[in-house]
Amino acid sequence: MREPLTGWTLGAPATALVALILIAPVGATIADISGGASPFALYQAFFASGFRRTVLWRTVGIATITSAIALVVGFFTALAVSRAPRRWRSVLIVMAVFALLTGVVVRSFAWLIILGRNGILNGFLQWAGITDAPLAMLYTQGAVIVAMVYLFVPLMILTLVGVLEGIPEDLIRAAASLGPSPAATFRQVIFPLAVPGLIVGRSSCPPDPSPPVPPAAAGGERQMVMGTFLHQQAMVRLDWPAASTTAAIAVAVTIAVVLAMTRLARRLNPAAT
């Protein structure tokens, strides 16, 4: 009979930490509507502002495009890695881990050197005679997407290699022995078997839709997203009630994404969740 109590006691410090350091402060942020006349005034102000709506849609847009690209790139790369000869597989996995372990700041900084006005890419394009003058590549939406894809691809490869390695070799061999093209084997056998794991893998480590660093580095002030906008409101303009509204909307977006993923995973593979 003292078992449930032991369980609670062992978990108590962790529970307390999450409650005090996460739930309470974030709850207070979301509940902060002190800056407006009515409870929803700040939200109305948010959605009434064309600039803020742009920031929100840009965030959602960039997150969607980034996830889609990272997913496709990661999937095919993981497929090749999981079916590569053993020795190569280890090398490729270690390289992906290495890329993942290089911090966000370092990996975003690299794109400044590459995409800058006097960067490598502009230097190359001019050397090759493709362009005459340096192109403005930094501080565009494309730059933010490239920097974020770069951030997510290693994670995607590592998650999906696990999923794809779980597909029994026998099944693929059996399918191949029936003589279809590799594309047909892929479409009819590998892909359907990988989908549930793919979504579960994706929902178990959802990307933060508003990481501030790649947009701050590669997008600057011109490509503001929720993360950078929140930082600007809170730390530059010191408008905390408005920043709280932005924060609450960012949380809502994240939760919506995670719930959608989980639901999709459950529908496709009831056993997995």
Binding site: A19, P25, P212, A247, A250, V251, V258
Partner: peptide
């Protein structure tokens, strides 16, 4: 589920909330 909460809250929101409240 409580212990995995940090995933549901963007880190930047967590940082801002800690600044505000704590």
């Amino acid at each position: 589920a409580l212990y995995v909460q940090p995933v549901l809250v963007p880190e930047i929101v967590m940082g801002f909330s800690l600044l505000r409240s704590v």
